[in-house]
């Protein structure tokens, strides 16, 4: 990686940005020419109707799409001044620096402690693992609930606790960016609220990108909002329609299609 000052300059203060990002499933273009710059230590929400490629774009930011054999990515994603799709970049290193929380809580069938410690251990964490587990669980607002059952299976926790465990696991490897793919869609409203509060705390330290179906959630939690929709040329490719401050987007959207979606006229 080039030195930080130069990297920051080339990114214009963005934590990560995409340049003409297009993603194909086989021959089908799922996402077309997305240019998105994500601001550091902000929460950016990606909203849009089903099937418009929100999750696909999110997963392009840490090369998770490559786990699906037929996916083909074109364009660039710049992170710390470097294109993460450059041939000499190791996707394993990318995913360590850009972590991910998934739609359904997916803790490992291991103990709570192991769930948090495992990622750090394989990535060669040098410090005290006990302390790391403690601080990560605390940061994920889970410590008080699980401090007496660190050796119990992560699967024995409730859904909301499991999702916070997944967040703790992600922050334990000290990523710069956390991607969240509809992290509350499998949770009840109270658990959802806790995660949202947690996200606001985490944003002080991490850059967060969240895909959500829930517009109130985007309005409540995010600083900036990106609205995706399908292209109107009949090819059904996902495109970035509008991007800006959440407040502006939800009060005075520039485009008609954004307003229609936000006010619930389609989607």
């Amino acid at each position: 990686m080039s030195d930080t000052a130069q990297a920051t300059a080339s990114l214009n203060g963005a934590a990560i940005l995409s340049k003409d990002l297009s993603i194909y499933y086989g021959d089908f273009q799922a996402v077309r020419d997305v240019n998105l710059d994500i601001q550091t230590n902000r929460i950016t929400a990606i909203i849009g109707p089903s099937g418009c490629g929100k999750s696909t774009v999110l997963r392009a930011f840490n090369r998770m799409n490559e786990l699906i054999p037929s996916v083909n990515t074109k364009g660039e994603v710049l992170f710390r001044g470097e294109n993460i799709y450059a041939p000499d970049v190791d996707p394993v290193e990318v995913r360590r620096r850009i972590g991910m929380v998934f739609q359904k809580p997916n803790p490992f069938p291991k103990s709570v402690y192991e769930n948090v410690a495992w990622g750090a251990r394989i990535n060669g964490h040098k410090g005290n693992l006990d302390e790391l587990v403690h601080s990560s669980l605390k940061a994920a607002a889970l410590w008080d609930e699980v401090k007496d059952k660190l050796d119990q299976s992560g699967l024995s926790l409730s859904g909301g606790q499991q999702q916070r465990l997944c967040i703790a696991r992600t922050i334990a490897v000290r990523p710069d960016i956390i991607l969240m793919d509809e992290p509350c869609s499998a949770l009840d409203p109270i658990a959802t609220l806790r995660i949202e509060e947690l996200m606001r705390d985490l944003a002080k330290e991490f850059t967060i990108i969240i895909v959500t179906h829930n517009m109130q959630q985007a309005a409540r939690v995010s600083d900036r909002t990106a609205f995706f929709s399908l292209s109107e040329d009949g090819k059904r490719a996902g495109m970035l329609m509008e991007y800006g401050d959440t407040k502006t987007m939800f009060t005075r959207p520039e485009k008609k299609i954004t307003e229609d979606y936000i006010t619930g006229r389609f989607g």
Binding site: F102, N106, R169, T170
Partner: peptide, 15 residues
Amino acid sequence: VPSSLRQASYGLGAT
């Protein structure tokens, strides 16, 4: 083995 486990592992930077 659920693919969500593999994704979780890869997502943490596992090989």
